[in-house]
């Protein structure tokens, strides 16, 4: 198992954000987290990334107890969050050089250019990121995590800011990553993007896991219906 979460909970003061979330993510699979705003998707991703410490439960990531040894977990994961981790005054290539060196990876120019080619940004490799669209910055983020050869990819709203071609490209990228044995956890609002890559679909509402089901058992319409039944417009379980 790439992730084993048992009874994860998180509260900020007296406000609970996550409550008793248990799930498994096997290697070579993709778990898609759906849920309305404030449902706890980002908090759960940040707990998996060891950026947030849960107030309850146990978590194992890539065979490591994430609460005891977060440093080893960080070496095994790649994260593309809301922020792209892109420095505006550096070029695309320089951004990759910085993050590759920080991650202790090979930062040779050929390898960095190949990573940019993989995300179809080789033509703008020497241009400053300040001029890039949010979709292009997101691609730099994906090139950054690909350089680190992570075993687990954590993505928060990765389809946001991508055009149709970009979404197609991202889906192909994730399918290729999975087929290489990597696991993906993806939080999104995009049903279309989710169903294209998911092996399992989980719906979070009000910090609780309301559904955890194989994607193959769900049609787009069926998923929409279940989602609408489980959530109201405020993200609470009706």
């Amino acid at each position: 198992m790439m992730i084993t979460a048992v009874g994860l909970g998180k509260s900020y003061g007296k406000t609970p954000v996550l409550d008793g979330v248990s799930l498994d993510v096997p290697a070579g699979s993709c778990l898609v987290l759906l849920g309305p705003n404030g449902a706890g998707k980002t908090t759960l991703l940040r707990i998996f990334a060891t950026l947030v410490r849960p107030t309850a439960g146990a978590l194992t990531v890539a065979g490591v107890d994430a609460l005891r040894d977060p440093e080893r977990v960080r070496a095994a994961i790649g994260m593309v969050a809301h922020g792209s981790y892109v420095y505006e005054d550096l070029t695309a290539l320089e951004n990759l050089r910085f993050w590759a060196t920080m991650g202790g990876q090979d930062a040779s120019e050929g390898r960095l250019r190949a990573a940019l080619a993989q995300v179809e940004l080789e033509a703008v490799a020497d241009e400053r990121a300040r001029t890039f669209s949010s979709g292009m910055k997101r691609r730099i983020g994906l090139a950054r995590v690909a350089l680190g050869r992570p075993r687990l990819l954590l993505l928060d709203e990765p389809f946001t800011g991508l055009d149709r071609q970009g979404r197609k490209w991202l889906s192909e990228f994730l399918l290729a990553f999975k087929s290489g044995g990597g696991a993906v956890v993806l939080a999104t609002h995009s049903f279309e993007g989710a169903l294209g890559v998911a092996d399992r679909i989980a719906i979070l509402t009000g910090g609780r896991l309301a559904l955890d089901q194989p994607a193959a058992e769900l049609s787009r319409e069926g998923l929409r219906r279940i989602y609408d039944d489980l959530t109201d417009s405020n993200g609470r379980t009706p």
């Binding site: 440093e71 960080r74 922020g83 420095y87 920080m102 202790g104």
Partner: peptide
């Protein structure tokens, strides 16, 4: 500069 685009978080995630 580390606050823009959440680079601070990226630094936190780097091993070592």
């Amino acid at each position: 500069a580390e606050r823009d685009n959440d680079c601070w978080e990226g630094l936190l995630l780097t091993p070592g």
